[in-house]
Amino acid sequence: MKIGLQLPWFNWPGGDAVIGPRLAEIGRAADEAGFASIWVMDHFYQMEMAGGPDEPMLEGYSALSYLAAVTTRPRLGTLVTGVIYRHPGLLIKAATTLDVLSGGRAYLGLGAGWYEREARGLGFPFPPTKERFAMLEEMLQLAHHMWAGRREPFTSAHYQLAEPIVNPMPLSRPHPPIMIGGMGERKTLRLVAQYADACNLFARAGVDTLRQKLDVLRAHCDDLGRDYDAIEKTTLDSVNLAPGAQTAADVIAKCRELAALGVSHAIFNMPNAQDIAPLETFGREIIPAVAEF
């Protein structure tokens, strides 16, 4: 099993002036500890449950490009980009640029988007759910089109690209892994089976729910003739490695449960990542232990 790090908070002691150097310090520490991936949310406002717009939030691809320059090994991605936030041609170009500049370490994380206040606040379109999922599927089709090197026009219900050229092409082969985040059984997991290289599920839903979602994904794969085992199963969870909270043994036990379900990449965020010590604990105790799962 691989371990990833998500960074959803930037309200670190010292204020806005320390965000850049502290992010670099965290990135280097995560690299040294052996984290397989580093992720940021692709939001422009902090989420309501984490303090809302009064808390700092970085633009995702700028932050990932910065992390690419201070790390050498972890893959980098957004967890995940709402399809409404960027025209798909621009998004594919941004993900390709990240892949090239990082030496082939990008993921393309995608979802239908959900944060209406953020969209309305900054003037992004926020169509109904059904339309956002239609846009997501067209985005996925376009990613495969462009990363296959096809330059003929791409036309769909929402997007028209006369010359969908991407140059340079990504270094990842055949292309940066496409991850879809979400647990919807009828739409999201069907899109994973049809178009994606990885899925991301919420570990806090519990073992029984995760098993159900993976069974649904397997059924979609069977219907579409897709190899279920070819899809990377990832999860997102929170952990607080601090006195009186959780321990390394707790995290290892959780990872063992996830591995038994077929999860091969467990991603964690933590409220005290900026203290660096929790990252070092992962590198010293957790990452070597779960590598055996």
Rank of each mutant, 00 (worst) to 15 (best):
W114C: 01
T155S: 14
L189A: 00
W9K: 15
T234L: 00
L90T: 11
F133M: 05
Q246Y: 02
P177C: 01
S264V: 11
L161I: 13
Y66C: 08
F124D: 10
K233I: 11
E137A: 09
T96E: 02
G52Y: 00
I3P: 14
D54K: 14
R117A: 07
Q141D: 07
D250A: 07
A143E: 07
G283Q: 10
M41Y: 08
M139N: 11
M1T: 15
A219D: 15
T188S: 00
L98P: 11
D208I: 02
L91E: 03
P177Q: 02
G15V: 01
S156R: 05
D208E: 12
Q194S: 09
R284N: 11
M270H: 15
A69P: 00
P153G: 12
D250G: 10
V239L: 02
W147I: 02
E118M: 06
D31V: 10
G206F: 12
E131I: 13
R75E: 12
M179V: 00
A17M: 02
A242F: 11
L217K: 13
Y115P: 08
P88Y: 11
D42T: 01
N269A: 12
P8H: 13
A29C: 14
L67V: 09
L201I: 02
R151Q: 13
F10N: 13
R211P: 03
V239A: 06
E138Q: 08
Y115T: 12
T209H: 07
G104T: 15
F268W: 15
G121E: 05
L258M: 10
L101F: 02
R204A: 14
P271I: 06
R86E: 07
Q46N: 05
Q141M: 08
H87G: 07
P125Q: 14
I26F: 09
G113T: 03
G149K: 00
R22Q: 15
L110H: 04
G225K: 10
R151P: 03
D197F: 03
I287N: 12
A106V: 07
I180S: 00
K93G: 09
G181A: 12
P74L: 08
Q194K: 15
G123E: 07
D42F: 01
E131G: 03
N269L: 14
V83K: 00
R75I: 04
L258Q: 03
D227K: 06
D31K: 04
A29D: 13
T96K: 01
S65P: 01
R173K: 05
P56Y: 02
R211N: 11
G181E: 03
I92A: 15
T72I: 03
L23A: 07
M169A: 13
V239N: 03
T235L: 07
L214N: 12
R86N: 10
V70K: 01
L189C: 00
G283H: 11
P128A: 10
H87V: 05
A63P: 01
Q246P: 01
L210Q: 10
R117W: 01
